[in-house]
Design a protein around this nucleic acid. Sequence first.
DNA 1: GGCACATATCAGCGCCTGCGCATATGTCGA
DNA 2: TCGACATATGCGCAGGCGCTGATATGTGCC
Lengths: 121, 121
Amino acid sequence: MDEITILQAEVLKTLASPRRLEIVHVLARGPIEVGRLAEAIGATQPNVSQHLAMLRAAGIVEAERDGREVRYRLADPDVIVACGVMRGVLERRLRRLADLSAGSDAATAAATTRLPATTSA
Amino acid sequence: MDEITILQAEVLKTLASPRRLEIVHVLARGPIEVGRLAEAIGATQPNVSQHLAMLRAAGIVEAERDGREVRYRLADPDVIVACGVMRGVLERRLRRLADLSAGSDAATAAATTRLPATTSA
DNA sequence: GGCACATATCAGCGCCTGCGCATATGTCGA
DNA sequence: TCGACATATGCGCAGGCGCTGATATGTGCC
């Protein structure tokens, strides 16, 4: 097993949380303090702090003190790029599903989930 | 909470596994059957089949029958692009850590993990 | 129809993770 | 030094995930 693959899985695992993803999206708009961040996403302060600790451990965000507050920012802008690419894939897929659902509806959803038989019905 | 953010977290969660990531990397080189895939990454057949089911449910891969075998392929090449970007980030980070470790070593690792004090020691 | 092969699915178990809560650490002002 | 504020950390619990082993489904060949 490749070394960098395991590392990449760690980073992905860290990003694979709606809360943390939301945090990253907020941070994409600029640095912010923990309190404001917690308020922005509607979560408790300890919870946000825990998520930030994980993101920091994964090297996704960086912290900087400013008085008694701590301001967080993204460590690498390319993370946003990668998320953007993935987001593009999802938006495209959603749009495609929306277009198809206008016609065949349930049959389409089933076709994308079920295993294909030998070209038969 | 944004709808697409949750969906994105789902996809990331699916990719956040060394095994599945390895599968994706193998699939990036072209379509392949389940048996060959299992042999390629050194895993059992049911295990690979389960992982493929998850990847398929997340819309990351697609399946196509060929006789009694089933050939899998990546659903969207942009997923590889996103992974590539992220991989670039990681390689860059590893190289940077390697360069720095030549000088300050442990102090550097601690500095990237610990919380920053008010510019003091 | 029956057999062999390829793949998918089910059941069970151990482990890890997220959340809420309480509390510790750190920082500024008086 | 003390109190108030901002942030971090430890703990306990419920829920999800991955792996293994056994079994079901599907397909081609005879």
